[in-house]
């Protein structure tokens, strides 16, 4: 029995085979983008690289602010600025900082190239928001982002769901500055 094929079905099927199925397979197997495809399209077709590597040290990020007339950094309460938790007990800003996500997905070059610009934009936004939320407080002269690598083999809490410890929990030598932004 012959099957009659409508033109719309044929072209729709070919379109999805060429622009969805083939790239899904190619990118998934090679971890490379298709050079002649637009980058946003390759981004949409990159669905394979999930949980590919072990993580013995989980990064915990903190935002710190330096008020005018002060030499002491204050640690900002992240929940005052970010509420949305897209997958996992972490804010969306974590996704911006996490190196292993970008390395696993093959975005390290684009991510590294623009990471300082992103941090500067975030610092400027945090300063503006801080001064709007705390109008009585001193204005800020700097914002910095710090990270602590929380080793799962060292004193790691497994009580309940993930809760990042306060910065004071960690020894000072474990705290690393990602970037500092002066205004």
């Amino acid at each position: 029995m012959s099957t009659h094929i409508r033109k719309k079905d044929l072209w729709s099927c070919l379109f999805l085979l060429c622009f969805w199925v083939f790239p899904l397979l190619y990118i998934g197997l090679t971890k490379k983008e298709i050079s002649f495809f637009p980058r946003p399209l390759c981004y949409l077709q990159r669905v394979a690289f999930l949980f590919t590597n072990g993580i013995q040290q989980w990064p915990v990020y903190y935002f710190q602010a330096l008020p005018e007339n002060s030499e002491d950094w204050i640690t900002l309460r992240e929940e005052e600025y970010f509420q949305l938790q897209p997958f996992g007990y972490r804010t969306r800003i974590y996704q911006m900082f996490l190196p292993f996500v970008h390395y696993a997905m093959g975005y390290e070059s684009q991510w590294q190239k623009t990471s300082l610009e992103r941090n500067e934009e975030l610092a400027a936004w945090l300063k503006q928001r801080y001064e709007a939320i705390h109008p009585q407080s001193l204005r800020l002269k700097a914002i910095q982002f710090v990270v602590v690598y929380y080793d799962i083999n060292e004193n790691f809490s497994l009580e309940g769901h993930w809760r990042p410890p306060p910065l004071e929990f960690f020894a000072p030598e474990k705290i690393k500055i990602l970037s500092t932004h002066h205004f």
Binding site: F51, G54, I55, Q56, W58, F87, G88, Y89, R90, Y94, I152, F156, L158, G160, H161, W162, P164
Partner: peptide, 10 residues
Amino acid sequence: EQLHGFYRTD
């Protein structure tokens, strides 16, 4: 290791 981090539920 992946389950230890911020995805970890109760």
